[in-house]
Design a protein around this nucleic acid. Structure first.
Length: 596
DNA sequence: CTAGGAACTTAGTAGTTCTAGG
DNA sequence: CCTAGAACTACTAAGTTCCTAG
């Protein structure tokens, strides 16, 4: 637009002085500019992510509110007034008292150590044993507070909602290259006690409060820079358009950098997502060649190549993650493919009537257990025996391999190929295949089978969840509904029978009609019963499986969109509002015969 | 080749909001 | 209208990948 305007001005000017030929030349020249610009707006070259970026900075966690004076902390049975800093950290613990975290030794030890750092000298001298600390009063106070919050009047709740909306409108958006975009996490993480997943050596440590002085702002030079809160300063304001983040800070538990970035609905995230699936589709074109290659490599003279080939086979067949090395003692002990240890697999020359079975049992990302018994090719089995020879259980299974080596190899096989592409590829292709096999005819049944297909992918990727707390109860409720429906059905059937008998005797129109009516009633109840039973199996099968992760991160949305278009199913049945925003690009571009 | 940093994607859970059905 | 439970959102931890320096 800018260049078009420029062009018009220029042409007017030139026309004025009558240099027609030059004008034509300039017109062509500026057309070129316009085209270059448009092209550049679509895809920047050499790592440039944006040309203009303006935002309001982060929203900080609310300041600490001291406890009212009647709420007391007791040490060794006696009330004790804590200094502000010590009190705040104490409340973090008090709030978690219901959680079983607080009973764990490591958690308590880490917490106490960090808590003492916040104490005054006197407090430090006095408070020497966590077991003598009584947070009961404080705990009750916070429980009452959250109850009170729930019990607020409608008007007050509405007021809170409006205030939140105001903050969202002010801080939740930025301008990136002529577009107003939603920011994903514009609130700074509040202080609290660190809760890792699984057996985390740092659980209970104090996650400290982030101040403006910790914050790096990233925006364009020519934008309105965000202002730090009065009386404070940012750590730094930089203008790096080779990255996508707006705000960053360093977190104190692992020393990792945290970022504020854009929402998945943004151009910058959407394009990246699209690219990811395009890479996976390129893998589809050459996967046969790659598979032939790694099967061949199982026979290699070189151990490192055999290990690489077996690992790749696992990644491809079982959708395992790459498995980077991790620093011991810094995080929970979890592994992926390349970091598997001897203790994580058991070899069974024969098991459950199958030959060459490998039993996997390890903790993966988020300490989610991966357990699987897989029959493998004889060559793979023999290779594994070889890799395990003369090793201790805690030794690396693939001692000549790591993710860097593996990814370097993959890069040579296909441009942009890395280990994680296999997960994306196998997830998406599985969905597509499963959807093709579907036969059901009505819409609800189709959606149910869509969920089945989604579930197949979730199982492949080992996306698990804790069974919902209310699962047993809600299952029981459903079961009693089913029982009631069955009862109703037999009643309806009985009534139908007697109506039939009646009709046989009477042989008049009225009784015939009654039979028809009862027949319909039976049918209706049967349908309802079926629906409930389907719901029950669906729920049961979903007990420990999380569908969301694969839907959001692994399944090319164009497959689902195409399927919806093909069968006349509204996209809303598959994707909720947020998901539709994230996948807007796919909903826009996929037609019914899209092929992954 | 190693180590560490940086940037970005993927992940499950807790809390909140919505909705169906009693 | 009320409530149980489903659905959705926010949060933030935990991965992968790429890059650089020694």
């Amino acid at each position: 637009i800018y260049y078009c305007l420029f062009n018009v001005y220029l042409m007017t000017f030139l026309h004025y002085i009558g240099l027609f030929a030059l004008m034509c030349f300039c017109f062509l020249l500026s057309m070129c500019f316009v085209m270059v610009c448009r092209w550049e707006e679509e895809r920047y070259t050499d790592g440039v992510k944006w040309k203009f970026l303006e935002h309001k900075g982060p929203v900080f966690a609310p300041a600490y509110e001291p406890l009212p004076s009647n709420i007391k902390f007791y040490y060794d049975g006696k009330p004790m007034k804590l200094s502000l800093g010590a009190e705040e950290v104490g409340t973090f613990f008090a709030k978690m008292l219901d959680h079983e975290y607080t009973t764990k030794d490591i958690f308590r030890k880490n917490f106490f150590k960090d808590w003492r750092k916040e104490m005054t000298a006197e407090e430090k001298a006095k408070i020497t044993d966590l077991n003598k600390c009584d947070f009961g009063d404080m705990h009750e106070y916070f429980k009452a507070q959250s109850e009170a919050r729930k019990a607020l009047s409608k008007e007050e709740k509405q007021k809170n909602k409006e205030e939140n909306e105001r903050i969202l409108q002010e801080y939740g958006f930025c301008v990136m290259d002529n577009h107003k975009e939603r920011i994903a996490n514009f609130r700074i993480e509040p202080p609290g006690l660190f809760r890792g997943r699984g057996d985390h050596p740092k659980m209970g440590m104090l996650k400290r409060r982030i101040r403006p002085e910790d914050i790096i702002i990233n925006c364009s030079k020519d934008s309105q820079h965000p202002k730090p809160p009065p009386g404070t300063k940012w750590k730094e304001v930089r203008h790096d358009n080779k990255v996508t983040w707006l705000v960053s800070w360093t977190e104190n538990i692992q020393g990792a950098i945290k970022y504020i970035m854009l929402n998945p609905s943004s151009r910058i995230k959407g394009e990246k997502d699209w690219q990811k699936y395009e890479t996976a589709r390129r893998l589809k074109k050459c996967v046969d060649r790659l598979r032939a290659q790694y099967r061949d490599d199982w026979k290699s003279k070189e151990m490192r190549i055999r290990q690489r080939a077996v690992a790749l086979y696992f990644i491809d067949k079982l959708a395992l993650r790459a498995g980077n090395e991790k620093e011991e003692g810094e995080t929970a002990d979890t592994v992926g493919c390349c970091s598997l240890r001897v203790e994580h697999i058991t070899l069974h020359p024969e098991k459950d009537g199958k030959e060459y079975v490998v039993e996997f049992d390890f903790l993966g990302k988020d300490s989610i257990r991966y357990y699987n018994k897989v029959p493998v090719e004889k060559r793979v089995f023999k290779n594994l025996q070889l890799f395990m020879e003369n090793k201790q259980p805690e030794d690396d299974l693939f001692d000549r391999l790591n993710t860097t080596i593996l990814n370097k190899h993959l890069q040579e096989l296909m441009d942009g190929l890395t280990a994680k592409v296999f997960r994306t590829y196998n997830a998406s292709i599985t969905l597509q295949q499963q959807l093709k096999e579907l036969t059901s005819h009505n819409v609800p049944a189709k959606i149910l089978s869509y969920n089945r297909a989604n579930r197949a992918v979730a199982i492949l990727c080992n996306h698990q969840r804790a069974p919902p707390k209310t699962f047993e109860k809600s299952m029981q409720n459903l079961q009693s509904k089913i029982d009631a429906k069955k009862e109703q059905l037999s009643d309806a059937k009985r009534e139908l029978k007697s109506a039939k008998a009646d009709a046989k005797v009477r042989r008049d129109e009225k009784s015939k009609k009654a039979v028809e009516c009862k027949k319909k009633a039976v049918q209706r109840v049967e349908e309802q019963l079926m629906k409930l039973e389907v719901q029950a199996t669906d729920r049961e099968e979903n007990k420990q499986i999380a569908l969301g992760t694969s839907k959001l991160n692994y399944l090319d949305p164009r497959i689902s969109v195409a399927w919806c278009k093909k069968w006349g199913i509204p996209v809303e049945k598959i994707y909720n509002k947020t998901q539709r925003e994230k996948f807007a690009w796919a909903i826009d571009m996929a037609d019914e015969d899209f092929e992954f």
